[in-house]
């Protein structure tokens, strides 16, 4: 395997956020996003408060803003969709710069954009401060079926291997003068996909045999069990609890 010990999404550090046990962080992020989704869209200031909370976490975790914002670019295709909403939604319309926009459409677009962005920002922070291995251990600790965690672990472990295989195929195609222009070239790409499947599956069979020869019985040994003290849980709960206060205020005011 050509990659290092950590994934490029992870940002090494030793901040208080990095040191929190993974399962506490997963619960915190999940609760936070749930609270955000449950907030009424008219409470605009509440979303500002959520953003400030996330910025505070990012500062505590010493995640550079550039890194954080660049990772959030994944949201772009979906922003394009949100921009369309004011044009297609119904209801009373408002004139703005000569465009006729639906008022409820504008609210919907704001709602989707604000909540989606906050969700992406929160998960980027989680991935940046937690190693993948710990993330998987945390998921298992939270009661995800061990078999599912094993599948996810194998997938992550071999993802770069399989993607590299794909890259080698692409280079081989290109060096033989192949360029994909339109549907006429699909057959070649589909054959690559087929070959990739056969190679992945056969690698899976070999991995299984190699594991059997090392004593695999269907379960992976747990080497380090994650534990969390009350203080750590309290630290992790600070984010969703603060968000919950904002959410309740948003409903009441």
């Amino acid at each position: 395997m050509s990659t290092g010990h950590t994934h490029k999404l992870y940002r090494h550090g030793s901040s208080p956020v990095h040191r929190l046990p993974a399962h506490c962080k997963i619960v915190a992020v999940f609760a936070f996003v749930l609270v955000v989704v449950a907030t009424p869209r008219a409470a605009v200031w509440a979303f500002g408060g959520y953003a400030l909370l996330l910025v505070a976490v990012a500062v505590a975790a010493r995640v550079p803003p550039g890194f954080w914002l660049r990772r959030m670019l994944i949201e772009v295709p979906f922003v394009a969709f949100a921009v369309l909403l004011p044009f297609v939604a119904e209801g009373p319309r408002v004139e703005w710069l000569g465009l006729s926009l639906s008022e409820s459409g504008l609210w919907s677009a704001w709602n989707v954009l604000a909540k989606g962005t906050l969700g992406v920002a929160a998960s980027v922070l989680l991935a940046a401060t937690t190693e993948i291995r710990e993330l998987l251990l945390g998921l298992e600790r939270l009661g995800l079926p061990p078999l599912l965690v094993q599948i996810a672990a194998f997938m992550i472990r071999y993802l770069d291997v399989v993607a590299d295989e794909l890259r080698r195929m692409r280079i081989a195609r290109a060096s033989r003068g192949f360029t994909a222009r339109g549907p006429r070239q699909w057959a070649v790409l589909a054959k690559s996909a087929g070959a990739l499947f056969v190679r992945s599956y056969e690698r899976g069979e070999r991995v299984h045999l190699a594991m059997l020869s090392r004593g695999y019985t269907g379960t992976m040994p747990v080497i380090d069990r994650l534990t969390a003290g009350t203080a750590q849980w309290a630290g992790a709960a600070a984010l969703p609890l603060a968000a919950l206060v904002l959410c309740l205020l948003g409903w009441l005011l």
């Binding site: 078999l147 194998f154 071999y158 794909l166 992945s200 069979e205 269907g218």
Partner: peptide, 26 residues
């Protein structure tokens, strides 16, 4: 049975990778 974890893991990696292949529409 016990082949599930490695095989499904590799197939999941394949699905992930195959979603990265861009098929030009023109």
């Amino acid at each position: 049975d016990d082949r599930l974890a490695p095989l499904a893991g590799l197939v999941a990696a394949f699905v992930f990778a195959v979603q990265m292949i861009n098929f030009p529409v023109g």
